[in-house]
């Protein structure tokens, strides 16, 4: 791709993992917004930790990446949002997250 400088279409980008979903052009704004809203509805500490953990994987040996992930988990288990999620799940209601 970089050696030829060629262009590639959405279908090829999906095949090569450059994009992960392809939607009709008319629905693009709605789909992008829906994905953003889904992420925004998740507990912020967990989203932040996941982004950081994923970005680190390419720089770490597999065992080190797992160890870092587990450090995040141990920290997040104490978070108020996680406790709220567990309580809400057992009570079968929607959780309210505060970012703590």
């Amino acid at each position: 791709m970089l050696l030829t400088g060629r262009t590639f279409d959405a279908a090829e980008a999906l095949r090569l993992g450059v994009v992960t979903r392809v939607v009709p052009a008319a629905r693009l704004d709605d789909e992008a917004r829906a994905a953003a809203e889904l992420i925004a509805a998740r507990p912020p500490l967990a989203v932040r930790a996941a982004r950081r953990a994923i970005a680190r994987v390419r720089d770490l040996a597999p065992a080190e990446a797992l160890a870092e992930e587990h450090e995040h988990v141990r920290r997040l288990l104490r978070s108020r949002d996680h406790q709220a999620a567990v309580a809400a799940s057992v009570a079968r209601r929607a959780p309210v997250f505060t970012g703590e």
């Binding site: 967990a46 997040l76 978070s79």
Partner: peptide, 11 residues
Amino acid sequence: GVALGLVVSTA
């Protein structure tokens, strides 16, 4: 995992 405020499967 993220819905529960956790980080799972990133590695």
